[in-house]
Nucleic acid binder design. Sequence first.
DNA 1: GCATTTGCTTGATAAATATCAAAATTTTGT
DNA 2: ACAAAATTTTGATATTTATCAAGCAAATGC
Lengths: 231, 231
Amino acid sequence: MRPADKSAVRHLDLFAGMSEEAFEALFETAYLQRFPQGVQLIGEGDPADFLHVVLDGQVELFATWNGRDTAITVLRPVSTFILAAVLRDAVYLMSARTLEASRILMIPAEKIRSVMLEDAALAQAMIRELATCYRQTVMNLKNQKLRTSTERLANYLLRLHQQQQQESVTLPFDKRTLASLLGMTPENLSRAFGTLKPYGVEVNGRDIHLTRLDELEGFAKADPLIDVPTN
Amino acid sequence: MRPADKSAVRHLDLFAGMSEEAFEALFETAYLQRFPQGVQLIGEGDPADFLHVVLDGQVELFATWNGRDTAITVLRPVSTFILAAVLRDAVYLMSARTLEASRILMIPAEKIRSVMLEDAALAQAMIRELATCYRQTVMNLKNQKLRTSTERLANYLLRLHQQQQQESVTLPFDKRTLASLLGMTPENLSRAFGTLKPYGVEVNGRDIHLTRLDELEGFAKADPLIDVPTN
DNA sequence: GCATTTGCTTGATAAATATCAAAATTTTGT
DNA sequence: ACAAAATTTTGATATTTATCAAGCAAATGC
């Protein structure tokens, strides 16, 4: 493991406020693992033995039922998953797989729970982190229940644009994954892009040109109570 | 306020472990309010000034976008809402309205945040509570993304049955609200009940007879990773 | 370079869900 | 008890979304 990794973890909101000793106690029990693309890291229903930290690569959280599956979110460096199951000493509600080759830090769940009882700053950070995750999931749910698939796509593109600050945005993963994340089939994603063409959305593989931003914004009706500024 | 109310609040998971002094400090700043049916208690986008506790009645959390609205959850005594916004000192992501005449305890958000910094047991309870809320919302999202509306209804009825332990279950609110909660229109809910008739679902106003439970279970395919045992 | 796989798109069709209008039923108020 | 209001149901239709099949295109392997 590189020193930069340790520093990156230390600077996560979750761990930044901890005492040095507590952090060391946590960190020395952790271990780093490399995974190729397409590996399932954890499965729904498994006991939560580790808190995972994405140091490099991309990880998809997804869920399955009755033969169907759907992406819930995609994580990039540096972020943790899945805290809630670890804290509740419960089973995972979601599975995780790498979307690209990734380096993942794994911290034993038991250690997280015990250190959290002693380090008040960590406990407070946990509260902030959980509250944020909860709120993001509520937004995700609102997005699903209140919008059509094309509206979800339009808002997704606008968020990408806000992050990337360029007229041409690049999708961070393949369209199949995007479709699943947005709660639609790949076929429908393709058609939704077509529907957005009159609003200045020009597709070129993973590169999307957004000419006529105002028109797209008019269609999307972005809402700070649904569309997370980050991520 | 009745002594029983104070006791009920004290026994909430969230407050049960606190020191007596800390609880008193919190409780003495709180005040109780009565609301008739159909009153909006808080609105999306408002700053979170109070943690609310439902002591009596029923409260619907719902969200709005672009003229549409949807129920996210319905709360019954004794439970709190909405913790995450209070802890993050953020605006509410959901609105709340009474579904029936209700008594609500309101605890100033600032007080919650300051007491939480001093009482470690409260902080730990917050962590457990937030993790639970988060997980419930993930389940809610999975329910929406992975199931059809009729499947959601079937699983909802089975959960009601598990709670009420009777062959005939009673819907806790009107069908319009249920439809919204399940993410469908009232018209479709009506038709979904029709679709479930072959599985032994007999509707009589708010009373639903579940003859042939096994058939309904076969259709519903309940999953502990989606269908919350409580609530 | 060419074949093969993989990912994406397109078309035709089906299923799920929403909308609109009206009828039927229940609840509410007096 | 009865009129009025609100809720629920039903029918007809439109929209949204999914499925299935085929075609196209870009990436991959040899």
